[in-house]
Design a protein around this nucleic acid. Structure first.
Length: 680
DNA sequence: ATTGTGGGAG
């Protein structure tokens, strides 16, 4: 039997023990010492493949005479076990000291190492050599070069390498799509995808191709193409591949088809923690937070070990629900399995604390992080802004800059909202210009909307209107809604009416804006116009969501619906609300009945007001929680003026801190005042 | 006659 073939087989099987036996045999029959380069190369390759790099290196270093294959075998070991830097060093050494030239096997490995280490200079040197030597015509070399350039964001250079190729092979397409996906260049990715569909038979696709194509579908939310690919891979029989399965789930999740996602998940035979996490992520991204948490219980039952991404998704689901109780138990579990210092998990913990209203906890978590990325900083800045703490937000931003961190698009959204909270108009405009000049970040809709909010809050309403008209946000509902809100707060009903008419023309598609418009009509006493808003809602099929509030008491969630009479304890809760409202009237509370339906009597209006869901929730929390404990209420809609006013008085009367998370931001009521300074 | 290019989740 051929010794070399045996060594090759044991290398492929990664059977370290078997190779060692052959090694011993070679020593015994005295073949190894007689400078048989090929046998030694085979041994180096064997140890390399099995991950025993030390043994490979000892053999390699002891060789008196080495050829290119010896170097190549050594390099392949380093490359496959994550020591790319070492491959580049070996190559330099090989060329310089032993005057050997890389061949068609060695060059792809060196190029691959350059790509993963970001060594563009060295990679370009390889390109030059490939050109001179003619190796550039070799498919493997060409692909490795394409990989280098796509990974270094030199797309044009990558395409130039391909100019001489009439047809691309599967591997090239996989490299290109993977690189374009990583960079989020969807325009180019769809072009490449279209060309691939034309040139390559579906049947030749492999698992990597499917994963990449699903990636493109997910990015573009192209469910049609996604379904087509799914159908094809069922035919090829790739659907039971672990990687393909996970990416199918991911694709359906990103395209919003949650039920297909679940069907795929249920029939998959091969599932690992990634598959499960992909399903959890799909639920979470589509805001099916309870389903995510429920599926995790099953994952636990099947003893699949969660990883950092699993915990991150679960914590984000808790954040979405403001489920502090479950979130805290996940936090404990994260500590137990030693993932506390992971950046992804740390970010999710900050987000969860912040979304549950515990902004101080969020900050301590932030402070205790070992590796903060730009997301950590953004979470803290936007978190403080959502809690109305502008000074703190700007403080974190300054700290970020002084530590030399690069701010991003999202960073400036947080910074501009902080400026708005503090009424710092000039500073806001300074940052708007600065982000472009200093950091080359093109301002987007969110930033412009922040500026509208900034001007509006500073009572510079006419400037805000001009600003909207002079920018790409001219037709943006959110920008006009922001201005409308400013008009309401500053009681400028003249401009408010105008803005409402503009909004009516653009035609908003969300209930929140419609409610604001109705409020404007009510405040301006334009009852005749109210029907126009109702008509718009009918035409656009906009449903007024019922007002929901919920609170957690000892790990139980209690949900309250506006006007609800079905709660078992509803009689007691209603009595408690009535009593509270009577009590705070002595402090100066006056019900704000203007925005309730106008064609009923006042008593009826007051009655409706008193059953707004957040009032029910606060009353229930007062009944069930120990004296002095803070009360945390979550709400699906924006808080109305009357509840806001009532909450202020209740906080004073009962000497409690009341934190309300509404659809947009946090209100922290203490001693009769709110952290939003009555502007929200 | 011993070495080689591309991988899923936040």
């Amino acid at each position: 039997m051929d010794i070399r073939k045996l060594l090759k087989a044991s290398a492929e099987a990664k059977n370290l023990k078997f190779g060692k036996i052959i090694h011993a045999h070679l020593i015994v029959i005295n073949q190894i010492s007689r400078n048989r380069v090929i046998e030694k190369n085979s041994l180096i390759n064997h140890y390399s493949k099995c991950g025993d790099l030390l043994s490979a290196r000892v053999l390699f270093d002891k060789m008196r005479k080495r050829n290119v294959v010896s170097w190549g075998s050594m390099m392949s070991g380093y490359l496959q076990h994550g020591y790319a830097q070492e491959v580049v060093e070996l190559c330099k050494h090989m060329v310089k000291v032993e005057k050997l030239s890389p061949n068609k096997h060695v060059l792809p490995m060196v190029l691959s190492s350059c790509s993963s280490c970001g060594l563009l200079d060295e990679g370009e040197q390889c390109h030059g050599y490939a050109f001179k030597s003619g190796l550039i015509f070799h498919q493997y070399v060409k692909n490795a070069l394409v990989y280098l350039y796509t990974m270094c964001s030199h797309l044009k250079a990558a395409m130039r390498v391909l100019d001489s190729s009439p047809r691309l092979d599967l591997c090239t397409y996989n490299i290109l799509l993977n690189g374009l996906l990583a960079q989020g260049d969807m325009n180019e990715a769809s072009c490449v995808l279209r060309r691939m569909i034309e040139e390559l038979e579906w049947s030749r696709w492999d698992g990597i191709t499917c994963v990449n194509v699903f990636g493109v579908c997910g990015h573009l939310k192209d469910l049609i193409l996604g379904r087509q690919v799914h159908g094809r891979l069922l035919k090829i029989g790739l659907d039971h591949d672990l990687f393909v399965g996970s990416s199918t789930i991911d694709m359906y999740g990103k395209c919003g088809d949650v039920s297909s996602m679940r069907t795929v998940f249920d029939v998959l035979r091969a599932r690992n923690e990634v598959t499960w996490t992909a399903a959890l992520t799909a639920y979470s991204q589509n805001e099916w937070f309870e389903e995510a948490l429920k599926l995790f219980l099953e994952m636990d039952r099947e003893n699949v070990v969660p990883n950092e991404y699993t915990f991150a998704v679960l914590l984000n689901s808790c954040a979405g629900l403001s489920a502090l109780g479950y979130g805290s138990s996940l936090h404990a579990r994260v500590e137990k399995v030693g993932l506390k210092h992971d950046t992804v998990v740390g970010n999710a913990l900050i987000y969860m604390a912040s979304k549950c209203g515990l902004i101080d906890d969020a900050h301590s978590l932030f402070e205790s992080m070992l590796d903060r990325d730009v997301i950590s900083w953004n979470l803290m800045i936007t978190g403080y802004s959502c809690h109305g703490l502008g000074m703190e937000a700007l403080g974190v931003f300054q700290q970020m800059l002084s530590e030399g961190k690069q701010p991003s698009y999202v960073t400036f959204v947080g910074v501009l909202s902080a400026c708005s909270l503090l009424g710092r108009v000039d500073e806001g405009f300074y940052y708007l210009n600065h982000m472009m000049r200093e950091y080359s970040i093109e301002p987007g809709l969110e930033h412009y909307t922040c500026i509208v909010g900034l001007l509006g809050r500073a009572r510079r309403l006419d400037e805000a209107e001009k600003f909207i008209r002079s920018n790409p946000i001219r037709q943006d509902v959110i920008a006009w809604r922001t201005l409308l809100n400013a008009c309401l707060v500053h009681q400028n009903y003249g401009l408010g009416k105008k803005v409402t008419d503009i909004l009516l023309e653009i035609g908003p598609d969300d209930a929140g804006t419609c409610i604001l418009m109705s409020n404007m009509h009510a405040r301006a006493k334009r009852w005749d116009k109210a029907s126009a808003v109702r008509k718009l809602m009918r035409e656009r099929n906009i449903k007024k969501e019922p007002g929901l509030s919920w609170i957690e008491i000892r790990n139980d969630t209690h949900v309250f619906v506006s006007g609800d009479t079905n709660n078992v304890e509803s009689v007691q809760i209603r009595e408690k609300v009535k009593k509270l409202l009577a009590e705070i009237r002595t402090l100066g509370y006056v019900p704000d009945i203007v925005t309730e339906l106008h064609d009923v009597d006042e008593e009826q209006k007051e009655d409706w007001l008193s059953y707004h869901s957040e009032k029910l929730a606060i009353a229930y929390a007062l009944m069930k929680s120990p004296p002095g404990a803070p009360i945390r209420v979550m709400k699906n809609l924006r808080m109305c003026d009357d509840c806001h006013s009532a909450a202020k008085y209740i906080s004073k009367f009962t000497n409690r801190t009341i934190i309300v998370r509404d659809a947009n931001r946090f209100h922290r009521f203490r001693e009769g005042l709110c952290s939003c300074a009555d502007y929200w």
